[in-house]
Computed example of a mutant assay.
Amino acid sequence: MTRSRTNRTYWAAGTAVVLASLFAAGATFATADGSGSADAGGSAAVRAPSLYSPDAGFARDMAVHHQQAVEMSFIVRDRTQDEPVRSLAYDIANTQANQRGMLLGWLDLWGLPKVVADEPPMSWMDMGAAGSMESMGSMGSMDHSDGHDGHDGHATKPGALMPGMATKEELDRLGASSGRDAEVLYLQLMTDHHKGGVAMAEGCAKQCRTPAERALAQGMVEAQQSEMKLMADMLRQRGAAPRG
C-alpha cells in the first residue's frame, strides 16, 4: 500500500467519525414528530426513536447494506487496473463508509442496539412508501402480517437478503475474477445494490421522522441514481449491460 493510499484511508476513517458526530448532534434536536418542542423550562424536549421505528430500522439495515458495498469496492480495486472502475470503487467505498458511520452514530446516540435478533430485514418499511415491487428488486420471501410502528409490516423473513444484496456465491465470483470480467461483474452487482439501496432510502425519506436522517436518505437516493447512470455507461463501454 502506498503512502498516498494509506493517507486517504486514514482521512476517510477520520472523516466518518467527524461526520457521524456532527449528524448525530443534529439528530438530538428531532422529536418523534420530526420537530422540536419546548417543555415548561423552555428547553428542547428530545424523544429518541423507538427500537422498531423506521428511523432505527433504516439505520440498522442500511449500515449492513453499505458495508457490503464497501466490501465489493475493495474487492474490485484489487482485481483490476482500470482507473475509471478503481476511482468509482474508491468513491463508493469512501462515501458509504462515511454514511455508515453516521447511521451507527445515531443508533449510539439514541441508545439503541446495532443488531436486533428478532428483527427481520426491512420490517420497518412500508412497501407502499418505496413504490412498486419492481423498484425493490428481489427481496426473497415476504411476510405480509399486519402491524404498526414499522415492526410487523411487510418484511423479509429472517435470513433473507435485503434488496440488491449480493449473495456469497456472487462475492466469491467477484473475488475470483480479474480484468474486464471483474469490472463487468462489479458494475452489475453494484447497480443491483444501488437499486435496492435507493428503494430503502426512499422508504426512509418518506417514513423516518428524524430530519437529519431523512435528509441523508434523500441524498443517498440522488447520488446512487446518478451513479447507476454512470455505471450503465461504463457497462456499455465494455460491451455489457445491467442485469435484469
Rank of each mutant, 00 (worst) to 15 (best):
E119K: 01
P163W: 15
E119I: 11
P120Y: 01
A16C: 08
P113F: 02
F58M: 00
V18L: 13
V76Q: 03
H148W: 03
R214G: 06
F58P: 03
D118C: 04
A223P: 06
D91C: 10
K195G: 13
A32L: 06
G26Q: 10
A25S: 11
A223M: 07
V46I: 05
I92A: 05
M72K: 06
Q225H: 08
P113Q: 06
D82C: 08
A166G: 02
L216S: 12
L185M: 04
D55H: 02
Y10N: 08
C204Q: 03
L174P: 11
G105S: 05
M139A: 14
F29G: 14
A89L: 07
R209Y: 01
A97V: 08
H148M: 01
V198M: 01
A25G: 15
G34C: 01
D143R: 07
A38M: 14
D118W: 01
P121V: 14
H154S: 09
M1D: 07
D39L: 04
H144P: 00
G197V: 08
K229T: 14
M136V: 13
G197M: 03
G14R: 08
R5W: 15
A130C: 11
P163N: 08
Q207L: 01
A201I: 06
S132G: 08
S132V: 09
R5F: 15
T80S: 06
D61C: 06
